[in-house]
Design a protein around this nucleic acid. Structure first.
Length: 884
RNA sequence: GGGCGGAUAGCUCAGUUGGGAGAGCAUCGGCCUUACAAGCCGAGGGUCACAGGUUCGAGCCCUGUUCCGCCUACCA
């Protein structure tokens, strides 16, 4: 055997770097839109430019890469677009924090300088995550890298904004929005995180204006009383309904408040009477609109009391004010009691400050008309996998509210709207206007606000293709084939891309949406820095190799289930990578630098016929599983085939051939070995790009050295061989039976045994006699005899496999009691099965109603077990007689 | 409150038209058998959460219950 110059263990580090550079230098993954092949395209869910790769990304990238590499093998023209998201608030926060260390604020710099500074940061540090994505082996086209805030994307944003405005779908209006006092910006509903917080219920006494009594109101936020403009009760409530139409006096302030009735009020909750503060509570805002209540805003944008509040409170911060108000209420005798009460509090998803409902002028997109089409397109044009997410998607679209798209920050697409200072005309335009369209004044002031980041993300599937230009990419690759993403952004992003895609391209943005799981820690907890349970993908990559990490994630990616990741599992699959490596080493040593020229048709023998048949089945399964997004099945199929079949059985079985003097026999087997190994590498390549490429590069006789561009192995129907499967099953059964006898009777592996088989039929006899050498090698035997009349000594370890009686003659030193115990264990198993089958067959309903094939199968099983039991009983009796 | 998902071996999970309960890891026993000790061989281990129902037959389909997780919502 020749020496292999490959290292004994797989060392991923240099290998990965080598091939990443190779692919990038050769532009392996840069497709030509004019080239042949059906298009297959994916746009990457753009990670935040401030982001650091976490397991969710790693999973997301791995799955997309499997699809892209697989589709290239199928001859598709594949485009995978990479890019990042400018992440307005997050990025601005990062740079503001940086400024703070220099003792500066963004206001010190001013808008233009600040934005310049953010760009500097972006060029220097931003997009680091793309390098990490590269590291995962992502076969993206780096030539088409995009950024949601680059020039081309800005063109798309402006065009969309202007068109929607002209269509009346974008409007400006007063509305109550979620306001972050710290970030100084509006937040969309889904950017607010709700969590329960301990708080208090303050029971307050409001006197009726007519002096006829008072009523008690429960509130969790007494300080908002300064903005109260009504009191509301349920008109069905016997306690209060006579009060509707009267007025009550607001404590401290003295304002008269109308008492209104609305079924919204829950009679069971609190005191059944509710104070209404339209300017500082979402629900009160709705109530206020319904009942035409005055909207009195008493907090400014920092959360301090403004000029609408009593003079003595002005300038106070809301949290401080609460204490003062409570004292003042107490002094006035209006505070009845304070109870503990847990309630839900909204927090800014970026800075965790408490969100304050706030009335202000904002820009909105009317969603209803867009949502209807997006809803109708699923599942007819866009299919969601797994499809239970369809329901969630519908639910959201059916209850959609208008989308507040303005944000009061600097980093982002500035709203393309200008107000004329002379005549007040509002100009919305794709190009910066120089003079007013109405009065020709040049005194134009652009809106200060920028757009919600998701506005530009929503255009991603077509903005990345170069729209609004009519590019070849857009024509060829839109709509994209599939979107792979987590469910957490189904609303933020997926639904909005659907709406925008349909509206602006008249076509859905993707044919499929695959929603993958969330990656949690091994106990099912969300990974977070504060909990300290984060498993870092880059660290895992360093430690175990990227292929092992990718394979682990793939094997966990069962549809619709969260992933509980543990490092131990990655370690396990690292062993698998190494196993592959060593099997390749073994093959390469034997191939000795040459690709066998023999025809595959010359290959014969149980091992060769069997493995070639199994290879065909694996090809089928791989195709089906990848195309149905059953990633875990992809991983499982390859694992089982490579380790449990190719390594454990095939490689062991061909050793006699490889060490044989018969050159033609050896060559025929080497040809099969070469074929199975090379095709297996191609099949596995989408999941493990690196180790497969490395092995590929040292396989002799390879024409195309870049495995990423090699076609999926063709079907080889003439290699399908059902007989080989059956024969192999018997072979494995016989070998396992001997091994079991050996181990259970504690016979040293080094001791060669003898095997005598009294065969049940001609086929079995032929199989054994044709493969004597294999039996000797696999079961460690030095002599094998088989035939219908064969007879072993009574003092034998025995077994029955498919009706064949096995005798392993035992030397005197062997413990016969152990053999008896072993047989008894076997009897127990048989009896258990027997009872079940007999019961089944005794059931008249089963025999008459079950399909004939099922009944026949059961009968055959019964017969086989009975046969086996009878034979084993006889063998046991013989053994017992010897012992006596 | 509404919705969704989960409950299968000690642990993590597969189980695709309902027809003999599986894998990996862990455990136990034996092995340096010339690709691999990151390995090889063998073994033990499960009332498929609980209670009903449909069916000849249920881990799988239907109903209810319990526990866990997530999403969502206007309980001041």
């Amino acid at each position: 055997m020749a020496e292999s110059n490959l290292p004994k263990g797989y060392e991923p580090w240099d290998v990965e770097k080598k091939w990443l550079d190779h692919w990038e230098e050769n532009k392996t993954f840069t497709p030509d839109p004019e080239a042949d092949g059906d298009p297959y395209s994916i746009v990457i869910p753009p990670p935040n430019v401030t982001g650091v790769l976490h397991m969710g990304h790693a999973l997301n990238i791995t799955l997309q890469d499997i699809l892209c590499r697989y589709q290239r093998q199928q001859g598709k023209n594949v485009l995978w677009v990479p890019g990042t998201d400018h992440a307005g608030i997050a990025t601005q926060n990062v740079v503001e924090r940086q400024l703070k260390t220099e003792g500066k604020t963004r206001d010190d710099l001013g808008r233009d300088k600040f934005i310049e500074r953010v760009w500097e940061w972006k060029e220097e540090k931003g997009g680091h995550i793309l390098k990490q994505i590269r590291r995962m082996g992502a076969s993206v086209d780096w030539d088409r890298e995009c950024f949601t805030f680059d020039e081309d994307r800005a063109k798309a944003v402006r065009k969309v904004f202007v068109q929607l405005y002209e269509e009346g779908l974008i409007y400006k209006g007063n509305y109550i929005i979620n306001w972050c006092n710290r970030c100084h910006t509006a937040l969309a509903d889904d950017e607010v995180e709700h969590s329960p917080k301990p708080g208090h219920f303050y029971n307050l006494k409001y006197k009726l204006s007519d002096g006829s009594g008072d009523l008690t109101i429960a509130t969790t936020r007494p300080e908002t009383m300064l903005g109260d403009t009504a009191i509301c009760v349920n008109p069905e409530d016997g306690r209060y309904k006579h009060l509707i139409g009267k007025t009550a006096i607001l404590p401290i302030v003295g304002r008269e408040l109308p008492i209104i009735g609305d079924s919204y009020v829950d009679m069971e909750f609190g005191t059944g009477a509710l104070k209404v503060t339209p300017a500082h509570d979402m629900n009160d805002w709705e109530l206020g609109r319904k009942h035409n209540l005055e909207v009195l805003s008493v907090f400014d944008e920092d959360g301090n009391i403004n000029e609408n509040g009593p003079e003595k409170y002005q300038g106070m911060y809301k949290d401080d004010l609460r204490k003062v108000i409570v004292e003042d209420l107490k002094a006035e005798g209006a505070l009845i009691s304070i109870d503990d009460h847990e309630h839900s509090v909204g927090e800014c998803y970026r800075c965790k400050s408490t969100i304050e409902p706030h009335v202000s002028e904002q820009w909105f997109v009317a969603m209803k008309p867009l949502a209807e089409k997006a809803r109708a397109a699923v599942p007819s044009e866009t299919k969601i996998f797994p499809n239970n997410w369809e329901k969630v998607y519908y639910e959201w679209l059916d209850n959609i509210r208008d989308w507040c798209i303005s944000r009061q920050i600097w980093w982002g697409h500035r709203i393309p709207a200008w107000t004329c200072e002379e005549c007040g005309e509002l100009i919305v335009s794709t190009e910066d206007p120089t003079k007013c369209t109405k009065c020709s004044s040049s005194k134009l002031v652009q809106e200060e606000d920028v757009l919600d980041t998701w506005f530009s993300s929503a255009l991603w599937p077509f903005s990345t293709m170069g729209w609004p230009e009519e590019t070849p990419e857009l024509a060829r690759y839109y709509p994209t084939s599939v979107l792979i993403t987590g469910f957490d952004i189904l609303f933020f992003w997926v639904a909005r891309m659907m709406m925008m895609g349909i509206h602006f391209q008249d076509q859905i943005p993707f044919h499929h949406v695959y929603i993958h799981a969330l990656v949690r820690d091994e106990h099912g907890k969300k990974m977070s820095k504060s909990t300290g349970n984060v498993i870092d993908p880059l660290e895992m990559s360093d430690k175990y190799g990227t292929d092992a990490l990718r394979f682990t994630l793939t094997s966990f990616a069962a549809m619709g289930r969260d992933i509980k990741l543990s490092e131990q599992r990655i370690d396990g699959y690292r062993n698998f990578v190494n196993k592959i490596w060593n099997s390749a080493r073994f093959a390469l040593m034997n191939l000795d630098g040459k690709k066998p020229e023999t025809s595959l048709g010359d290959a014969s023998g149980l091992a060769n016929e069997w493995i070639l048949h199994r290879l065909e089945e694996v090809k089928d399964t791989m195709r089906e599983a990848v195309e149905a997004y059953r990633f875990n099945e992809v991983a499982q199929t390859m694992y089982k085939f490579i380790w449990n079949e190719f390594c454990d059985w095939y490689l062991e079985m061909i050793k006699p051939d490889l060490y044989s003097d018969d050159a033609s026999r050896k060559d025929a087997t080497l040809k099969v070995l070469w074929t199975v190994l090379s095709e297996t590498m191609v099949l596995l390549h989408p999941v493990m790009p690196f180790v497969t490429q490395e092995i590929w590069s040292v396989l002799p006789g390879i024409e195309n050295g870049d495995i990423a561009t090699v076609a999926f192995p063709e079907k080889r129907d003439n290699c399908r061989n059902e007989k080989a499967i059956k024969d192999m099953e018997l072979f494995q059964g016989l070998v396992s039976a001997v091994r079991n006898i050996r181990t259970e009777l504690i016979i040293a592996p080094s001791k060669k045994l003898e095997l005598i088989v009294r065969t049940a039929n001609d086929q079995s006899a032929a199989l054994i006699n044709d493969n004597i050498e294999l039996f000797k090698a696999l079961a460690r035997l030095d002599n094998v005899t088989a035939g219908p009349e064969a007879e072993g000594p009574s003092a034998s370890g025995t077994a029955v496999v498919q009706g064949n009686e096995l005798f392993v003659p035992l030397a005197g030193a062997v413990d016969f009691e152990s053999e008896l115990a072993r047989l008894d264990k076997e009897f127990a198993k048989l009896d258990k099965d027997l009872v079940m089958i007999e019961k089944k067959l005794a059931n008249k309903g089963f025999v008459s109603n079950a399909p004939a094939a099922v009944v026949e199968k059961e009968k055959a099983r019964l017969e086989e077990i009975n046969d086996k039991k009878a034979k084993l009983t006889e063998l046991k009796d013989r053994l017992v007689s010897v012992m006596e």
